[in-house]
Design a protein around this nucleic acid. Structure first.
Length: 573
RNA sequence: GCGCUCGUAGCUCAAUCGGAUAGAGCAACGGCCUUCUAAGCCGUAGGUUACAGGUUCGAUUCCUGUCGAGCGCGCCA
């Protein structure tokens, strides 16, 4: 619908350029947008404000002149005016607005999808929680956020793949292996003390028990010497167990990945050395000594020469280490090899969703990727702020170290997948989020998901009533005369339906999933208002059919939006 | 000390890549169920958008500075 007005305005601008009112050549961009205030029409443009300098006229005068150039044969706009400092407001005809109802019903599940991103291949990497323990609520927020961004990009025409990067190499994995070994020995009656840095939590005991059940005392004679690697079978057993939990937990909140990418394969396939080789070719590698860190200096700090990447050349604050002083690859080296691999797979855009605590890491990865691909904006990182878990006003502390963290599973078990997803998404990713368990458990309006789902269920209830009265539900298929829909509540409800595709495009462009739940809440609110003051099941058959069609379209859009967010759309509650 | 993300009603948050009179929910107060689901609706009240400048037709939005919060700052991941 916006397209109609955009075409109209650009036609007028061209005409004014050709008759000399406006300068020829390139002009600054103007916008056609939805006014905040409905009395300002369906669309407004700031064209006269932006272009007035190029016509040497006052904005309002130019606006008048533009309106005079409005083609006489168009049928969509029935009223327009110059307003405020020089905005032009367009009011769409009521018939054109009502036409949205059959349009939406005909498109069904596909209403809202667009071709905006067609031809664009996007890889979105998210969660990527370490396989050293269950996911906590912070991971859950990143998971839901990444999944929603992926869904929104997909519905706006992008080709999207979801990927999980498994950090199955490095020290932490060895630490996990030894932690399991300690608990395993403990199960056989050995007295042990968990060394500093190990994972003491209960889940490690569970893994140890499972290991004992599978292998008996097979590992009992292995010496607990943390200066060497633990048995690889034990490490793999622990990681496989944990990844099984993670996959299961993700599945319960409706998240499925296309690819699971193992860090080990990077080492095994020589991709890290190959990537360092690429950087060497570009003369971006050197042996150097890093400056001591700012702030409080670690006790054991000492300057050592290492292999470094010149990331300062690409805007990073420091050069970054690719190899440790013992010659092994750093996590960073593996990570740029991973991102280089993604780039070589031919995507047009890479999106990573990270926790905000990794914010300081963004520049160096982008720097490396720019150096390797000569592309500037290939990698985009969305930072998701942390979740403060609250129970009855008291903050719940979360830490992997002391083992008191609350897992995502516990929260999902308590409040359900729908509420978890919806609450996580009803916040912009940039803001930290207080998640109150008591509040989320209470089935009150504090859970906005109920509000939206209830609107959807109510519409189904009306249809059930309809059938009890022996009337045919096809009355609401949008085929009848809709001109009896004249109430303000009806027109603004239809207008709201019409903004759904634009809202989705905005959410996609800005990577802002929270716009979807806000839209749904607004739509549900408009519906509840209408429902409370007007009967749908009227005796007048024409009016009945029109109103049924209207709420049927509302039902369709609510269902589309909820489904997009991975939240269920129940038919009764 | 430096970097990143923020600062909007009592609380939790919105505000369409700079737009018109900054909006919702919760909490408070007052109304609406013999009629399609009251998990709902209607009304009242609540603001110097942290602060001070700058950019322009116009700033919650962009720039600079101050204050405050969270996160990060050697070879960990």
């Amino acid at each position: 619908m916006r397209q109609i007005i955009e075409n109209l305005v650009s036609g007028i601008v061209q005409q004014l350029q050709s008759d000399g009112t406006l300068q020829a050549g390139d002009l600054p961009e103007y916008k056609v947008e939805r006014p905040r205030d409905e009395t300002h029409g369906d669309f407004a443009t700031n064209a006269a404000l932006v272009l007035s300098r190029f016509a040497k006229m006052k904005p309002r005068d130019l606006a008048q002149k533009m309106l005079a150039a409005l083609p006489a044969n168009q049928k969509e706009v029935d009223r327009w005016e110059v307003a405020g400092p020089g905005f032009i407001n367009f009011h769409i005809t009521s018939d054109r607005i009502r036409q949205l109802i059959p349009d939406i019903l005909q498109m069904g599940q596909s209403y809202g999808s667009s071709k905006m991103g067609s031809g664009k291949r996007v890889l979105i990497e998210f969660v990527s929680a370490n396989p050293t323990g269950p996911m906590h609520v912070g991971h859950g927020r990143g998971a839901v956020m990444g999944d929603a961004i992926a869904s929104i990009l997909k519905v706006t025409g992008h080709t999207v793949e979801r990927e999980y990067y498994i950090n199955d190499a490095g020290n932490q994995v060895g630490v996990l292996g030894w932690s399991v070994m300690m608990r395993y020995h403990e199960l056989f009656g050995c007295s042990i003390t968990m060394p500093e840095g190990c994972y003491p939590a209960q889940y490690v005991v569970e893994i140890a028990k499972a290991l004992r059940d599978q292998d008996g005392n097979r590992w009992l004679n292995v010496e607990l010497d943390m200066s060497v690697s633990p048995p690889i079978e034990v490490v793999d057993f622990a990681m496989d167990t944990i990844m099984g939990w993670i996959r299961g937990e993700l599945a319960t909140i409706n998240i499925l990945f296309d690819n699971w990418f193992s860090e080990r394969t990077l080492h095994a396939d020589g991709k890290i050395e190959a990537t360092i080789g690429e950087l060497t070719k570009k003369d971006l590698i050197f042996e150097g000594v890093l400056a001591p860190p700012k702030g409080k200096l670690p006790d054991d700090w000492e300057a050592r020469p290492q292999l470094l990447f010149k990331s300062t050349k690409y805007g990073d604050a420091e050069d970054r280490a690719l190899k440790k002083s013992d010659g092994s690859a750093t996590y960073f080296a593996a990570d740029i090899a991973y991102h280089f691999d993604k780039a070589q797979r031919g995507y047009d855009l890479l999106i990573d969703v990270w926790g905000a605590d990794h914010g300081g890491y963004v520049k160096r990865v982008q720097a490396a990727l720019t150096a390797l691909t000569d592309k500037n904006n290939l990698l985009e990182v969305e930072l998701v702020q942390m979740v403060n878990l609250v129970r009855g006003g008291e903050p719940v502390k979360m830490s992997k170290r002391d083992g008191t963290f609350v897992t995502l599973k516990e929260v999902v078990d308590e409040v359900g997948s729908d509420a978890v997803r919806f609450i996580f998404l009803t916040r912009s990713g940039g803001a930290s989020l207080d998640f109150d368990l008591e509040l989320a458990v209470s089935k009150s309006n504090d859970n906005p998901v109920y509000y939206v789902q209830y609107a959807h269920a109510r519409i189904h209830a009306v249809y059930r009533q309809l059938q009890e009265k022996g009337l045919d539900k096809s009355l609401g298929d949008g085929g009848g005369d809709l001109s009896c829909l004249t109430l303000d509540a009806e027109m603004s409800l239809i207008r709201a339906l019409g903004t759904y595709p634009e809202m989705l495009e905005g959410a996609a462009i800005n990577r802002e999933p929270h716009r979807v739940p806000y839209f749904l809440i607004d739509l549900a609110s408009a519906f509840h208002t209408y429902y409370n003051s007007h009967r749908i099941l009227e005796d007048d058959k024409v009016l009945l059919a029109a109103r049924l069609s209207l709420i049927n379209a509302v039902r369709q859009v609510l269902a589309n939006g909820l489904t997009l967010l991975g939240v269920s759309a129940p038919e009764r509650m």
